[in-house]
Design a binder for these strands. Structure first.
Lengths: 206, 206
DNA sequence: ATTTTTTTATTGAACGTTCAATCAATAAAA
DNA sequence: TTTTATTGATTGAACGTTCAATAAAAAAAT
C-alpha cells in the first residue's frame, strides 16, 4: 500500500522495532525477520532503507545517543540557577530521564555498549558521547575546585552514573530511577561539600 | 596424541581460549572453530568436554565469577584490622585485582554481563554474585551507620565499582586499576566520613 | 471525469554463506 | 588388544541479502 513520503515513518518504525526486539530477546538473537515482524513489514525493507542490518543497528544507537543528549540539554537550558551544582544536577537528571531509563531503551543501550568494544563505528559513537559527558562534568567541577580534584570528581560521578545504569538494566525489575537519582545527587553533594559549597535550597528527590 | 587425564587440562585450555577469543573479536563473533584454533585443538572437542558451545560459555563465566570471589576472599582473610573500613577496602581491592582487570577477563566479563540479560542460566550466576557483593557491603556498613544509610552506601559503592569496571572495559587502553582503586577508596572515605569514622592510618594508593 | 502511464513502496522466494553439532575413522597409550 | 582421546568432513538449520514481481498512488493524457 505505497503512499509517498513513507521513508521517515518506516525508518522510525524500524528503529523502534529494533529496540523492542533487543528488549525481548537480546541483540544476539535479534534477526532482521524478527525486527520486520515487530514493525509489521517484510524483511527486505530493512536493506532498502538502511542498506542492511548493520545500518539499522547503527541508526538505532545514534537515536539513543541523540535522545540522551537532548534530555540533558533541555534540562540545562531550562535552568534558572547558573551554579555548577545546578548544571551537574541537570546532567544527572537528564541521564535518568524517563524515556531513557524505560525497558527497551536501557537494554538496547547496554547491548550496544558491550557490542561497541569490537565494532569501530559503534565505538566511535560511544566515545564521542562519553567524552561530552566527561568534559561537561569536568568543566562544571572546575568552577569550584582545583583541576586535579575536578578531574577525579568528574570521573567518579561518570562512573557512578554508568554503574547505576548498568545495574538498572540488569535487574529484572528494571532501574529504579528515583533511587538512582537520589544516590547520584547524594554523591554529588558529598563531592561538593568538601569545597564548602552551600547545600541546595530544596532537595526534591525523595 | 591421546594421553590419559587430559580432561582437566583441556577444559582449562578451552576456557582460556574462550576468553582470548572474546577479547579478540567479541562474543558475537566467537565461534567454536575460533576457540578451538586458539586452544590448538579441533572444534569437535568442545562438544565432547562441555556438551556444546553453551556449556563452554557457562563454564567460562563460572570461572570468572569464581576468580573474583576468590580474589576478594583472600584479601579479607589476610586482614589484620577487623574494622568495617578494612573489610570494605579489601572488597574494593579484590574487585580490582590484577588478574580480573586485565584485558581478556574484563572484556569477557562485560560481554557476559550483557548476555546475561536474556540467558536465564547466566542471569542466575550473575545474580548470585551480585547479591553477595551487596550483602557483604551492607553488612559492613551497618556496623557504623543506621540501616537505611548502610543500604544506600552499599548500593552506591556497588554502582561505583561496576561503573569503573564498565568504563575500564570500554576504553581502548583498558582499565587504569590504580585510578579506579583510588576513586573507589575516596568514595568509601566520603561515605564513612559522614559518620565520624577515623581516617585510615596510611592511604597507600597513589 | 476517465483512462493510461509513470513513479514509488513493498513483498517474499531464492541464493549463498556461516555455524554448531555429529559421528565414523584414527591413532596413541595402557 | 583394549581403552581413551581426538580429528575433520558432513549435515542440516538459520541467517542476511538480493531482485524480479506486484500493487498502490500520483501524474499525465484523453
Amino acid at each position: 500500500m505505497p503512499k509517498v513520503g513513507m521513508e521517515p515513518i518506516r525508518r522510525q518504525q524500524l528503529i523502534n522495532a529494533t529496540m523492542a526486539a533487543i528488549d525481548e530477546v537480546g541483540l544476539a538473537e535479534t534477526t532482521v525477520m524478527r525486527i520486520a515482524r515487530h514493525a509489521g513489514v517484510s524483511a527486505g525493507i530493512i536493506s532498502h532503507y538502511f542498506g542492511g542490518k548493520d545500518g539499522l543497528l547503527e541508526a538505532t544507537m545514534r537515536q539513543i545517543l541523540t535522545d540522551l543528549s537532548t534530555a540533558v540539554a533541555v534540562r540545562r537550558h531550562a535552568l534558572e540557577d547558573d551554579s555548577s551544582r545546578a548544571h551537574i544536577g541537570a546532567i544527572i537528571e537528564g541521564n535518568f530521564d524517563r524515556t531513557q531509563v524505560t525497558g527497551p531503551a536501557a537494554k538496547t543501550w547496554l547491548a550496544f555498549w558491550a557490542s561497541s568494544m569490537h565494532k569501530p563505528m559503534l565505538q566511535r559513537l560511544q566515545n564521542v558521547n562519553d567524552r561530552r559527558l566527561y568534559s561537561n562534568l569536568c568543566h562544571q567541577f572546575r568552577r569550584v575546585m582545583p583541576r586535579l580534584e575536578a578531574r577525579n570528581a568528574a570521573r567518579g560521578l561518570a562512573a557512578m552514573i554508568d554503574g547505576l545504569w548498568l545495574r538498572g538494566a540488569l535487574t529484572p525489575e528494571g532501574l529504579d530511577a528515583e533511587e538512582a537519582r537520589f544516590l547520584a545527587h547524594t554523591y554529588l553533594d558529598q563531592l561538593l561539600a568538601h569545597y564548602g559549597c552551600q547545600q541546595p535550597a530544596s532537595n526534591t528527590y525523595s
